[in-house]
Simulated scan of single mutants.
Amino acid sequence: MTKTAKPKWAPATLSEYDGIRFLHLDSIWVQGAMRIRKPQQLELEYIQRMMAWMLWRDSAELNEGHAVQLGLGAAAITRFCHKVLRMRTTAIELNPTVISACRAWFQLPENDRLLTVVNADAAEWVANAEPQQAQVLNVDLYDHEAASPVLDDEAFYAGCRALLADGGLMTVNLFGRNASFARSAVRIARVFGSDQVWSLAPTKEGNTVVVAARGVRVPERDELERRAANIEALYGGYGLPARKWLRLVRPLPLSIVEQLHHQQPAAES
């Protein structure tokens, strides 16, 4: 009897409930979601928080530059950056069935002048990418069981920082039963510098979003409040509660800063 070869990729499947379409990878874990009648709306709370980088950008430059997404999911961030912000947008996804599913079920357009979706390994792509090409980098990399980030070491985060232009911003989703916020935050801060890393309080599902910057000057509180109000005025209807983000943003805990004090190398310019 000939044995059937095990598929190399976890197949993408979908479910629907209450007007929302969900992406799965051969498991019960939700890999992404889209409200069918409002496809550009950011449905999942942690995906909304992945857009918190907007607080650290000047309002006049909010949607300028190149946005890179590592891990396509249901293409929510990719669609938003491409269709709503109208930024040049690049998405890197290892699993070809996810790309096919997003194009068939989640309204991901074909590549065009502003959009490039690449079927590639994120670690390899980052290592070989042109440096300082991105103003925004969103990292959401999980296997089909969503146990922990699949790329979570200093070498990877160093590549991410190298990808960012001066003033660029990265958001990272930290989630899963084997994930550790402290462990990941230390690795990120060693690369970016402890004064360039923040986090948002966890969602009720347990997702913690980390924001890391390359040489960003933190605005005064009143300027952040003006930016948050501007984001909500422009994009609140898409699911961006920016003033709530301000209440959730935290600097790195003192325990992590103390770990870094004697061992953190200075971030390269």
Rank of each mutant, 00 (worst) to 15 (best):
W56D: 05
W29K: 14
I99L: 09
L254A: 10
S269V: 14
L174P: 01
D222H: 15
D121H: 13
V172K: 02
I28D: 13
A76C: 04
Q196M: 00
H82N: 09
P219H: 03
W198G: 00
Q48W: 01
S27E: 10
L70G: 06
V126Y: 02
S100H: 10
V117L: 10
R247A: 15
G167E: 06
R190I: 01
P251S: 07
G176S: 10
K244W: 05
N173T: 07
L151A: 10
R183F: 05
M50R: 00
Q135V: 02
A12E: 10
L224D: 02
Y46C: 05
A228F: 04
D112K: 11
Q107E: 11
F80Y: 09
P39A: 04
E225H: 08
P109F: 11
M1A: 09
V211R: 01
R57M: 13
E93Y: 06
I256Q: 08
Y235P: 02
T203E: 07
I256F: 04
K3C: 02
I36Q: 07
L44I: 07
V211A: 07
D143A: 11
T13A: 11
W9K: 00
I77M: 13
A12D: 08
D143W: 06
A76G: 10
F22S: 12
R21M: 05
A165K: 13
T90A: 03
E205D: 13
E110C: 00
A122V: 10
Q135A: 12
C102R: 04
A33C: 06
D121M: 12
A12V: 08
Q107P: 00
F106A: 10
K204T: 14
K38C: 03
G193S: 07
R250F: 00
A229S: 15
G206K: 06
V209H: 04
A212M: 03
D140A: 08
D112P: 15
E124D: 15
T13H: 08
G168K: 05
L151H: 12
Q196D: 05
E268R: 11
E145R: 15
I20G: 03
